[in-house]
Design a protein around this nucleic acid. Structure first.
Lengths: 195, 195
DNA sequence: ACAGCCATGTAACTTGTTACATGATTTT
DNA sequence: AAAATCATGTAACAAGTTACATGGCTGT
């Protein structure tokens, strides 16, 4: 329920109209998570339906404003102060994938890992580049965006490390078919990426 | 689309009936992600609707088997060999939360972080305990489950690190109101957790 | 004139998920 | 006999998401 609460939080700052909510959301997350405008309006309707927000008239330009309600503030407070438990997060698709891949006999798991790692590292570099650009920009980059970006970096790094770890577990589980070379061939494992 | 593909992968190993799919799924993920039986049946229906699976008769006990189709295998192959891009993952609710929390003026962000960290560290310990139990158990623990468990650990660790990092960014952003003590008071930051 | 952004909205669809109904078989 | 587990399914809903329709306003 990220979008829902996100929109609610933006309304808590001040009443906003739909299009404005979208821009605000995208600015905070630095375009990392684009938000379809349509979704803003569906979300606003649903918030209104649930009495967490309400229509708050229109301005001279004809913008339809929405404002948070008391119930909305309460719900938001609850959201902010309640930790997000790992159990009620969406299932980790990648973990499931690898867990099922190791049992598939007509599949090269090492290749799956390799492909994923390449992509994760590419993502990592993208983020690094974004961060560099944000730091160099004249205006001080939005704090919110920096945090989001950092989150992505930390996650991607963890993912790469986990993939490496999985490779290790695999070698350990099934004895190498080829007679293992005394010094393991330095294949394209993860290398440290400059931060 | 974790469940959908997960079920498909299980059918790829051999035809299975609904209840069996559930047990298999939960075994692989070690009960980390419980799966409502009902969802298995809805998923199977949808897979059948999309021609990725098909009914495959029943056995003596009356179990309704489902088998993967050629199209299903193709789709599965695609799933396995295509990396999961960060962009098409569900939005990170925690990141959004903190990104919006830093802008809220009637909210103690440090407390939000603190609460979340406590929970993440609790989760981390739970996983560690689970791993210990799995290692001590007589039967060699399911490789799939170990990988899933490791994924959770890596993610939780990254999350804690990120939370610490956020705290740092915050102190850096808004100059401390209290005259900063020369040596920063060792508050309850993250401590290394035995693995 | 035309492209493009601003702005609002709706219809339709997906996956995930739960709650419930129903009955057979097995264990205590 | 009661409780638990095995087993199959349906109805209903939430949240996320996209595609489309519609129109005003702005810059080239």
């Amino acid at each position: 329920m990220s979008v829902r609460h996100g929109v609610l939080a933006l309304l808590a700052e001040r009443p906003r109209y739909g299009y404005e909510v979208r821009t605000a959301f995208e600015t905070r997350t630095g375009g990392t998570w684009p938000l379809n405008v349509g979704q803003v309006y569906t979300t606003l309707s649903r918030l209104e339906r649930d009495l967490l927000a309400e229509a708050a008239g229109e301005d001279d330009a004809g913008h339809q404003y929405y404002a948070i309600t008391a119930a909305g503030r309460a719900e938001l407070r609850r959201w902010f102060t309640t930790p997000i438990r790992r159990e009620d997060r969406p299932r980790d698709e990648l973990a499931i994938k690898l867990a099922l891949a190791v049992a598939a006999d007509d599949l090269d798991v090492a290749e799956v890992i390799q492909t994923q790692r390449s992509d994760s590292m590419r993502a990592l570099q993208d983020y690094t580049r974004l961060k560099a650009r944000a730091g160099a920009s004249p205006e001080p980059a939005d704090l919110a965006w920096l945090l989001v970006l950092d989150a992505m970096v930390f996650q991607a790094e963890a993912e790469v490390r986990w993939l490496d770890h999985c490779e290790g577990r695999l070698l350990q589980a099934r004895p190498a078919r080829e007679p293992a070379p005394t010094a393991p061939a330095p294949t394209m494992r993860s290398r440290s990426v400059t931060r």
